[in-house]
Design a protein around this nucleic acid. Structure first.
Lengths: 359, 359
DNA sequence: TTGTACAATGTAAGCGATTACTGAAACCGC
DNA sequence: GCGGTTTCAGTAATCGCTTACATTGTACAA
């Protein structure tokens, strides 16, 4: 600001750009003129479409670099009907889960030159009645749906418009041929509960997730199957709602204890809930795993850092995001995809459910 | 699929959309025709620009709803030179910090109809030499910079192009009038270290963040000032790199212990590092806070859930994201903004640094 | 009654790329 | 040397909106 060294190309450049401000930016015509070719040729070089001689390519690349040309996204979007952007609709979570997921998606699409357009909200969106999604077939080339706050009708609408869609941790609306990426929840839960049973636990609490959550529903099925296959009865009173969150889970366990319920293990719907359960026990001076064993789900960051370290069903969160990204890209490219991708989980036994602590 | 009830408008509609597939979608002309007005009027109604009679507005809104019209983002972007999208450049973190931040940004811009275009990467980007950012003045109306992987030169370039920019947890390139949103790191660190000193600690380890990280640098200044103001010497040997991560921090503490270093407290650069320190102590059977007191920074989710519960400098992460969002929007709107927003932190004393545990 | 001001709407020129179409030159085997 | 390909590159239409400008209509003061 202020200083201007006439002979310094960079400073001169700054000066120029300041002068012409936000308009008159360098566009493809400028590049074409600079390289002595037509805009079509520049476009071909940029996109690698059509045939351009090596010499010309060199010239064009040189012009692009020296002018610092970057194509206008909207213009490309309009002309090419391609945005190189995919969208994700998801709940506004603030957990490790969320972060890992996004990272996975991002890295899966990054090298392909795609960008993630994120729409995050906790309020329902719908194409009928409510405000329509700001995402969809205009702004993005594809969509990852990872939320319960979007009704089947809207999904069906976009799907039938031809928008590539991948469901993430949620099943597709009935009858629609939309790929799903999810964990093998039922199996993972079965193994977790089975592990508890094998260690002598008989009365096992299950902490459900939020109302309508699919992961939770499937984990509950696994829980029931494990009990059934060990010929243990299901006590509906031991099934409570932990909402995949620490505080509600803690309260649920406290309530159970106050009610004088009898149980020797807790299978929490996820690790957040498990941590809540852990704290309830700690506050009540109940030994874990001595009196009560606890197993969570997900293998969140903090699972191994709480004390006692939390046994949990390790779920490939990052991979699920990554898989969703690559699947969507394949879909966009018109390649065949596997329609139901279920990722395996793995039981990780730590201190919170070890046998040795048990009486 | 298959069933088609002639008299049901929705089904008929599906049928139609399927037939005409991905092209011939409903565009503004269709709406104009349906409402019996010109496209200009439809555009005015959509954007709330210009004057349109209430009756006409009604008709247009009705047409929009019945045709399920959603404006083509790229077309609007091209024509209006407005994308209603802001970008963020950030490191590919997988922490609670990141998630809360994004949530804050998102919610701050959501009600204004903006969307977040996220570019996340761990590889350097630059306008000179390297691959240019896929974000910037073409694709977004503004940019939040939250990463060290973007050089000052690029930021200066975009800034002088007139792109609204807000720096998040990073200072602006010298001489540029770019707003900064950050924590009061120095002060927060000072208070944390001071707290340790007041509780009788004398030899305090500091675990730095990653190379070049600004938050870390500022926290180190606070650490040094606190020691100085208590007339305590700074032992450079007690300053180690914890990289804002659990494992490196754990190793750093283990190394210190193996070297026979003498210290009675650890001020960790962030909570991840603090957890690592905690584990190193636990593994070595060192009592916390009995022998060594630990204080972290951020007040991450797990801080209160580890054991002993972690004392930490609580930082308003979500608010910082939110503030960055609103500031950027103001900037875009041409409104005056506060150029240096420093958010206050708050020391939260939990078990890991309580006096009673100290000899 | 006429002129002025303003409200309401239409017309049409872009915005900056992509790409279908077309033409010119170079290369091929016979 | 000649029709037939191929390669390389240019022309110009097009994508779906926004908006400057033009136009019409109506109210109101002079």
């Amino acid at each position: 600001m202020g200083t201007l060294y006439i002979f310094c190309p960079f400073q001169t450049f700054w000066f120029m750009t300041i002068k012409r401000s936000h308009h008159q930016r360098v566009k493809i015509d400028d590049v074409a003129r600079e390289a002595g070719v037509s805009t079509a040729t520049v476009s071909r070089v940029i996109n690698g479409t059509g045939t351009v001689s090596p010499t010309t390519q060199q010239r064009v690349h040189h012009a692009i670099r020296s002018l610092r040309f970057v194509a206008h996204g909207s213009a490309r979007g309009l002309a090419g009907s391609k945005t190189n952007t995919i969208g994700i609709v998801m709940p506004a979570l603030t957990t490790f889960f969320f972060a890992a997921l996004i990272k996975g998606i991002n890295e899966s699409i990054e090298e392909q030159g795609y960008t993630l357009l994120m729409y995050s909200s906790n309020s329902p969106a719908s194409m009928i009645g409510g405000k329509p999604l700001p995402l969809g077939d205009h702004n993005t080339d594809g969509l990852i749906v990872f939320t319960d706050f979007l009704d089947d009708y809207s999904i069906q609408y976009m799907f039938e418009q031809g928008l590539p869609i991948v469901m993430l941790h949620r099943t597709a609306p009935a009858g629609l041929d939309i790929p799903v990426v999810a964990f093998h929840n039922e199996k993972g839960a079965f193994e977790a509960v089975n592990h508890l049973i094998e260690n002598g636990r008989r009365r096992i609490v299950f902490l459900k997730g939020p109302e309508g959550n699919e992961d939770s529903r499937q984990r509950e099925l696994g829980y029931r199957r494990a009990l059934a296959s060990a010929d243990l009865p299901v006590d509906e009173n031991l099934i409570r709602r932990g909402k995949f969150a620490t505080t509600p889970a803690k309260q649920a366990i406290e309530t159970l204890l106050q009610e004088g319920a009898h149980f020797d293990a807790i299978f929490a719907g996820d690790d957040n809930a498990a941590v809540g359960a852990l704290e309830a026990c700690r506050d009540m001076d109940i030994s874990v795993p001595g009196q009560i064993a606890i197993v969570g789900f997900n293998d969140d960051y903090m699972a191994r850092h709480v004390s006692p370290a939390l046994s949990t069903v390790s779920a490939p969160i990052y991979e699920s995001g990554f898989k969703a990204g690559t699947t969507l890209l394949k879909l966009i490219a018109g390649q065949p995809v596997n329609n139901a991708i279920r990722l395996e989980t793995k039981l990780v036994v730590r201190d919170s459910s070890r046998r040795n602590g048990h009486g």
